Amino acid sequence: MAVINVSFQVLPQVPDGNSYAVVDRAIEVVQHSGVKYEVGPMETTMEGELDELLDIVKNAQQACIDAGAKRVMTIVKIDYAPQGVTMEEKVGKYRNAPR
C-alpha cells in the first residue's frame, strides 16, 4: 500500500475544561507510534500506510477518554494517491522561507 497523509484533530469534551492536557495525551500516542508526523496548532499530520494511521487515530481517541474526556469528536482528513503522498512534497518549500 502507498504511503499517504492523514491529518486529525481531536476535540475532547472535558469536565474541568482543560482540553490541552487531554490533547497532549493524543499527541503522545502519535509520538510513540513511530510514524513520521508533524504537530500543528489545529491538527496533527502523519505519514504512513492508511490502516496503521487510522489505528493511531483510534488509539488517540481512546487516550483522550482515558485522560478524562467524556466524549471525543475527531476530524480526519486523508490524502491518498496510488503513487503515494508525502508531507515534504506539500510543504517542504515553505520550511525555510524567510518570515
Rank of each mutant, 00 (worst) to 15 (best):
N5W: 00
N5P: 00
N5D: 03
N5R: 13
V6S: 02
V6Y: 01
S7M: 10
S7Q: 08
S7Y: 03
S7W: 05
F8M: 09
F8A: 13
F8H: 08
F8N: 04
Q9D: 06
Q9L: 07
Q9E: 15
Q9P: 02
V10I: 14
L11Y: 15
P12L: 04
P12R: 02
P12H: 05
P12E: 04
Q13C: 07
Q13A: 09
Q13Y: 09
Q13V: 12
Q13M: 05
Q13F: 05
V14L: 00
V14W: 00
V14E: 00
V14S: 00
P15R: 00
D16P: 04
D16L: 01
G17D: 09
G17F: 09
G17W: 07
N18K: 15
N18D: 15
N18M: 13
S19T: 15
S19E: 08
Y20G: 00
Y20A: 10
Y20V: 08
Y20K: 06
Y20S: 12
Y20Q: 03
Y20M: 10
A21P: 05
A21Y: 01
A21T: 12
V22P: 06
V22W: 02
V22F: 04
V22T: 09
V22E: 02
V22K: 07
V22L: 05
V23P: 08
D24R: 09
D24Y: 03
D24H: 04
D24P: 03
R25V: 03
R25Q: 15
R25N: 10
A26T: 04
A26Q: 05
E28L: 07
V29M: 07
V30G: 05
V30C: 06
V30R: 00
Q31A: 15
H32N: 08
H32R: 10
H32S: 10
H32V: 05
H32D: 09
G34W: 10
V35T: 14
V35N: 09
V35A: 09
K36C: 02
K36L: 12
K36V: 10
K36S: 11
K36N: 09
Y37P: 02
Y37S: 00
Y37E: 00
Y37K: 03
E38L: 07
E38Q: 12
E38F: 01
E38T: 11
E38H: 08
E38W: 03
E38C: 03
E38V: 07
V39F: 04
V39I: 15
V39A: 10
V39D: 02
V39P: 00
P41V: 07
M42I: 12
M42K: 07
E43Q: 13
T44H: 01
T44F: 01
T44P: 02
T45L: 05
T45K: 00
T45V: 13
T45I: 13
E49H: 14
E49A: 13
E49R: 14
D51M: 08
